[in-house]
């Protein structure tokens, strides 16, 4: 076991699965890089180096650079999955789904149902998401709620290097189309990651903190912030449970309900735009099924309903942070109007 970055963890997961199963291929723009160019091969290994080294090990036949043609290669990945390969396609920035969404939500997501259950589509689409990179409106969105909305897709949002490796291996071995979200601000985060292959189940939330006073649900990079907020609050005498659902589809709502019933207070931290995001979905489900347990109104910590701004001054303001989480928890702690008689 060694400390590995999130980037290394994803790389190692794909590498081990490629070694284990010859049907696993990877494809994407600059996934190796330097295709047809006079300089180095494997020049990039993906725009942020996540797939570096795969091409020299497995060859161009299994590590396919594509032209900039998202509909073309995402659709090809879906067709290849339908016919016997297990492709891992890299949709670089999730913002680019705008040019290929049909192949994901009308094609890959629906094969199994439309075809009466006979299809298997073992497709993984890796994609970068999230703000904080000073990358402005077209390279910073979260968008996982849109994929979560579509039946037939599974949506994975790992929160740490350990989680990333186990969830990626699970995603590659899964027989359904999986959208795998990698936060660009997490790539250099390090963690103990076993050298051996392992899997983390989909639809099983992870409790990263356990407390009695409030439940915080957070996704992806927000889990780190929620943990930090919980630790600071703990030192001030407010103990919080932090839930990392790991996957938004399937969603482990039962664990969330169980924890909310135990604490009576819920804060959901979601970096996605606030309308129809995971926070609103979870708030609705909890209000529907555990209303009687709530001691305070549910609080959602999300950005404002604006595009992601460019200027650091504005982007920092836009993003949820530890302070905003702490203040939301303080708000649910202060709201005592529904204490049981």
């Amino acid at each position: 076991m060694a400390r590995k970055s999130f980037r290394q963890a994803v790389n190692e997961a794909i590498r081990q699965e490629m070694a284990r199963d010859p049907r696993v291929i990877v494809m994407g723009e600059d996934i190796a890089g330097g295709m047809g160019a006079p300089g180095e091969d494997d020049a990039w290994g993906g725009p942020l180096g996540v797939t570096k080294g795969l091409m020299p090990q497995f060859g161009r036949e299994r590590v396919l650079d594509t032209p900039i043609t998202e509909s073309g290669f995402i659709g090809a990945a879906a067709g290849a999955a339908l016919t016997g390969l297990r492709p891992v396609a890299d949709l670089m920035f999730v913002d680019f789904m705008g040019v290929c969404f049909d192949q994901i939500f009308n094609q890959a997501a629906k094969f199994k149902y439309m075809f009466g259950g006979k299809a298997r589509t073992p497709l993984v689409i890796r994609t970068m998401y999230g703000a904080g990179f000073r990358a402005a409106s077209q390279h910073s969105q979260c968008l996982y709620p849109l994929f979560t909305h579509v039946p037939g897709l599974k949506v994975v949002i790992p929160s740490s290097p350990y989680e990333a490796k186990g969830l990626m291996i699970e995603a590659i071995r899964d027989d359904d189309p999986v959208i795998f979200f990698e936060h660009k601000m997490l790539y250099d985060v390090e963690d103990e990651v076993p050298d051996e292959p392992y899997t983390l189940p989909f639809g099983e939330a992870n409790l990263t903190r356990e407390g009695d006073d409030a439940t915080i649900v957070a996704f992806g990079r927000m889990v780190m912030l929620a943990n930090e907020a919980a630790d600071q609050l703990g030192a001030q005498g407010i103990s919080c449970t932090v839930i990392d659902p790991r996957t938004t589809s399937p969603l482990d709502i039962e664990t969330i309900l169980e924890e909310v019933r135990a604490t009576g207070r819920l804060v959901v931290v979601d970096e996605a735009s606030p309308r129809c995001n995971m926070a609103s979905d979870i708030a609705a489900q909890v209000a529907e099924r555990a209303f009687e347990a709530l001691k305070a109104p549910i609080r959602r910590v999300s950005p404002p309903h604006t595009p992601v701004p460019f200027s650091p001054a504005l982007e920092d303001l836009y993003l949820p942070d530890v302070e905003k989480i702490i203040s939301a928890v303080r708000a649910v702690m202060a709201a005592g109007g529904r204490k049981a008689a």
Binding site: S71, G75, G79, T83, L85, P87, D102, M114
Partner: peptide, 30 residues
């Protein structure tokens, strides 16, 4: 659709099938 017969589906989206056929061809090639 009838995948056992290589019929990857009629398609309600005009233009939806061509990338999928590339995928099937990629499987064959790989």
């Amino acid at each position: 659709a009838d995948l056992d017969r290589g019929m990857l589906g009629a398609n309600g989206i005009v233009g939806g099938g061509a990338p999928l056929a590339c995928g099937a061809a990629l499987t064959a090639k790989t």
